[in-house]
Design a protein around this nucleic acid. Structure first.
Lengths: 128, 128
DNA sequence: TTGAGTGCAAAACATTTGCACTGAT
DNA sequence: ATCAGTGCAAATGTTTTGCACTCAA
């Protein structure tokens, strides 16, 4: 894999970002550094970086995909009030085998867990 | 809410389906019964039925949304080999509080859990 | 030097919407 | 009779792709 200016800039944007960005947000941010980059290149690189495990691709079922510069395993909280997607530390790792009976013939290799509720700010503002 | 021919047919297709269908698959199936139904009507009704809790809308991050005629809470297994989405019985219920620390200010109201791996048929065929 | 990567523009795909008409109540 | 629901077609928004060109190795 070649290290291009575009690829470096995309990775940098994601690593520096506080929130988890959409492809379009990445595009906008990277343009500050590489003005002539195209949206197609952004998509291509996000796909490649995710496949290589350098970033994470998060599909949430609400709006477009988002990308997370943190490749470590962690879970997300989707705020029902403001729509943001933020990291959530887990008390203990999630073990699929606790929940699924392996004798039924299928094979469980992994699991995607996404919490939803209220983020810190919205919980405070709505006085919950 | 009115009980139209279209709405009844859509619900019936989803309740009879073994797998969890995309809007397009529902459209194709319903056309056998209501040939002049439009895709827009299918989408509108799927949205309404899901909001009313009669069906479930499942966004999986791979391909288009899928719809589940079973409104009860249960989890799904996405087969990495053939792409189907099927129901998975759980040994015990999933309790978010076991995993997430409630003292951090946010509020967890629910969780979406999706397993991935191999469905029965693919597990058997690939000899795992 | 050379082919992986790029920019551009068009295409593909899923979903939503405006509008005049229809049919369930 | 009324208006929620429908069919149609166009619009929207996201993501992918073909192709000629560029530049990292």
């Amino acid at each position: 894999m070649r290290v291009t200016r575009q690829r470096k800039a995309i990775l940098q944007v994601l690593r520096r970002a506080h929130a988890h960005l959409t492809a379009d947000e990445v595009y906008a941010a990277v343009r500050a550094e590489v003005p002539r980059i195209s949206l197609g290149t952004v998509y291509r690189n996000l796909e490649i970086l995710a496949t290589m495990g350098l970033i994470q691709k998060i599909t949430t079922g609400l709006g477009p995909m988002r990308f997370d510069g943190n490749p470590e395993r962690h879970v997300h909280l989707r705020c029902e009030r403001c729509g943001t997607l933020e990291d959530l530390p887990m008390k203990k790792p999630f073990n699929p085998q606790e929940y699924v009976d392996p004798s039924l013939g299928h094979v469980v290799r992994g699991v995607v867990v996404e919490f939803h509720g209220l983020c810190r700010r919205c919980a405070a503002e709505s006085g919950v």
